[in-house]
Write a protein that binds this DNA or RNA. Structure first.
Length: 460
RNA sequence: CGGGGUGUAGCGCAGUCCGGUUAGCGCACCUGGUUUGGGACCAGGGGGUCGCAGGUUCGAAUCCUGCCACCCCGACCA
């Protein structure tokens, strides 16, 4: 997947906000290798198994000219690696192998490290942004001296993700834990934030894992505690990826194109001055005025772009910036300037209004905030309207087919039942929600007793 | 890997059944002019190994054989 500058800026803005949140919670960044020796990779069996089917592997380290096909290259059979290198699908293996050497004492703990990196998972079928063979992400890997502290860390980072999704991406999410079959390979517990796309399908948008001592045992990561006893460390890992860009697109867009929440939009405002090809004076006036407004907005920390392209008409530009999801369009023309006005159009509601240029910076600052809230509310209203409680399998199938969204249903807790339901309906358990109300009920599929509802959905 | 489909200009397509002008259309691109408050118009222009290789034929985008690539559905998955 190629990510062009506009899309990449979205990712950068997400990255910047997240990175700050990680730092604020005591984490630091580091970088670990892309290539993982196979022997390291396979050390934690469950994790290795979980990813085995989607690993790209480096087997050779050299090409040479193909004697049979002049001008072509071939893999040099002489350059076969003694040990194959797995291209990281995730970095637990190499990181824990490294942590082993960094941790000796409880004084070295907790170790709170994050890395921004690319990973490769050889997908059979890819989907732009949502599932690509190579993607960018961040992966936090932490080591703790107690189980409670590690669990607390995993839960804390889930909260960070949820806060980021809701406050920056205007994306309402449901926090919860994964069922056993959806759990990260090698984890004891996987926490997740689940979002709902406008087509009624769910999207796992971030996960945080309590890894127990699984990796510590696999990589022999021990520390000496205060009582002078050796113990295995407790671990977590957590990540979000460029999938979030896909989430953003699919959660908010409409028939006119993207709708970007101001807090991560590459530009929050586009200023479109009316220009005339053969009227240099007018053009100069309009551009000067635009620059003046831009300066004013920049002073408030607002990201602004001015479009001074004379070869495109205004109407064309309007449509184009709507397509790109710019939250606010500010138009200045001779007619407006006579009264010291401008025309403001907001992307989320498509409303246009004439606004005085006096205090335009305050006006837009407030408007951006309003748009941010409105986009979030709209998505939340949609999400809430698409969580349906069902109490029979017939109803389950009916809702899934006609309405989609999350289905809240009783489940007997068995993997077999979950699997059967998936085979019959394509729906999977997205999560067992946090603070889930406990209520007696019967499994929607088997009729076995159940003490809580879980959320099912078709998912990306 | 199984089922289905598509490869013709940067993009989207027609032409292929039934072989026969110089391979065409829309968008985009370039030049000039007129326009300009919601995706402008007119005129002119540039751009093609018709996926690749072989074959049949006087003649192949079109028929035959082989190969390749991509897309959709399924199995896998964040």
């Amino acid at each position: 997947m190629v990510i062009k500058p506009y899309g990449f800026t979205l990712w950068e803005n997400m990255k910047d906000a997240l990175d700050k949140m990680f730092k604020d919670t005591g984490h630091v960044n580091a970088y670990f290798p892309l290539f993982v020796p196979k022997s390291l990779f396979e050390a934690e069996e469950k994790n290795a198994e979980g990813f085995a089917k989607e690993c790209a592997i480096v087997t050779h380290y050299r090409l040479k000219n193909d004697p049979e096909n002049p001008g072509k290259l071939m893999v040099d059979p002489e350059a076969k690696l003694e040990e194959e290198l797995v291209i990281r699908p995730t970095s637990e293996a190499i990181i824990w192998n490294t942590y082993k050497n960094w941790i000796q004492s409880y004084r070295d703990l907790p170790l709170l490290i994050n890395q921004w990196a690319n990973v490769v998972r050889w997908e059979m079928r890819t989907r732009l942004f949502l599932r690509t063979a190579e993607f960018l992400w961040q992966e936090g890997h932490t080591a703790h001296s107690t189980k409670a502290e590690a669990i607390e860390e995993a839960e804390k980072m889930l909260e960070v993700y949820a806060a980021f999704a809701e406050e920056f991406m205007a994306l309402p999410v449901i926090k919860g834990v994964k069922s056993e079959s959806e759990r990260f390979a090698g984890a004891v517990e996987t926490y997740t934030i689940e979002a709902l796309m406008q087509d009624g399908k769910a999207l796992q948008s971030g996960t945080s894992h309590f890894l127990g001592q699984n990796f510590a045992k696999a990589f022999d990561v021990k520390f000496m505690n205060k009582e002078n006893q050796e113990e295995y460390v407790w671990a977590t890992s957590w990540g979000v990826s460029t999938r979030l860009v896909g989430a953003l697109i699919m959660a908010h867009s409409d028939d006119e194109g993207l709708v970007l929440p101001p807090r991560i939009a590459p530009y929050q405002v586009v200023i479109i001055p009316f220009l005339r090809k053969n009227d240099e004076e007018l053009t100069a006036t309009m551009i000067a005025k635009s620059e003046e407004i831009k300066k004013q907005l920049n002073a408030k920390g607002i990201r602004v772009q001015i479009d001074t392209d004379e070869t495109k008409r205004a109407g064309f530009k309007f449509a184009e910036y709507e397509l790109k999801g710019y939250p606010v369009r500010l138009v200045v023309g001779p007619r407006d300037l006579e009264n010291n006005n401008c025309e403001i159009a907001r992307r989320d509601t498509k409303e246009k209004s004439i606004v005085s240029l006096e205090h335009i910076d305050d006006y837009i600052e407030q408007l951006l905030e309003e748009i941010q809230q409105n986009i979030y509310q709209k998505a939340k209203t949609f999400r809430d309207a698409n969580i349906t409680k069902v109490d029979s399998f017939e109803e389950f199938k009916e809702v899934l087919e006609t309405k989609g969204g999350f289905i809240s249903a009783h489940w007997d807790g068995s993997t077999e039942t979950e699997k059967k339901i998936q085979e019959l309906t394509k729906a999977t358990i997205r999560c067992i929600p946090q603070n889930n109300p406990q209520e007696e009920g019967k499994c929607v599929f088997t009729g076995n007793p159940s003490k809580e509802r879980v959320l099912f959905a078709k998912a990306y």
